[in-house]
């Protein structure tokens, strides 16, 4: 039960999201109109990415403190899944921007910050791929991971709030959170965030298990050729 209970919860939360997310009432707003429902899908991608990158940074620090190989694997896998959700967040954001702002890419502070974060984490994988030695790779990746995480916070959460931005929740734009994300939306939005975050961890867990098995087989081969 403990092993797959949280996966059942993931499925339930996501099914609730696609059902309630389309059937229940939402605020009637100009410009966004019915697309406000995209909030249940676009925003949880970013919440999921941030959650996974946070977990990745935590396991990076753990690796540096304890030097255990599986912590490095956890760190890399969480970053992988975070990257997937970040990509989906970016693409869905562009589609939504095309509809509400008029163009796919607007160089809005929020978009630019997300793009830089994306490149910073892309470099994390480039770094991993460019170092042959396992221990060296794990150590460098963990150190870089901490810097990448430290760069993400201002790029996504602070700078867009300081400047003018059209993205809700940024700049002079109060966004959905303060006025428009009313209680009717909250009852769908928060479970949606939880569901998508859990799905991200599920995917990360699969990669961890696969890579773990791969590594054990390699070790086994090495010991008895």
């Amino acid at each position: 039960m403990k092993k797959w209970g949280w996966k059942i919860a993931t499925v339930a939360l996501l099914l609730y999201t696609v059902t309630a997310g389309f059937l229940w009432e939402v605020p009637r707003l100009h410009i966004v109109n019915e697309t406000i429902r995209a909030l249940y899908f676009h925003v949880p991608m970013w919440f999921g990415m941030v959650a996974l990158f946070s977990a990745s940074a935590v396991f990076g620090i753990r690796y540096l403190r304890q030097g255990q190989t599986h912590h490095d694997l956890y760190s890399a896998s969480f970053a992988h899944a975070g990257m997937l959700l970040g990509t989906l967040g970016m693409v869905t954001g562009m589609v939504w921007a095309h509809y509400t702002w008029g163009t796919f890419w607007h160089w809005d502070p929020k978009q630019t910050g997300a793009a830089i974060t994306y490149l910073v984490y892309l470099a994390y994988f480039v770094l991993r791929l460019s170092v042959e030695n396992t221990e060296q790779r794990a150590r460098l990746a963990a150190v870089y991971n901490i810097f990448a995480f430290a760069a993400m916070i201002p790029l996504i959460f602070i700078i867009p709030r300081l400047t003018d931005s059209m993205h809700p929740g940024s700049g002079g734009n109060p966004g959905f959170n303060m006025y428009d994300l009313d209680s009717r939306m909250r009852v769908v939005f928060y479970p949606a965030v939880a569901g998508w975050i859990l799905l991200g961890f599920w995917l990360a867990q699969q990669r961890i298990r696969l890579k773990n098995a791969e590594e054990q087989l390699l070790e086994h081969e090495y010991e008895q050729p």
Binding site: E215, Q216, H220
Partner: peptide
């Protein structure tokens, strides 16, 4: 993955 892990030699990490 469950089935694969059962077949693995050695330690579980």
């Amino acid at each position: 993955l469950d089935a694969l892990e059962k077949k693995l030699p050695g330690k579980k990490g």
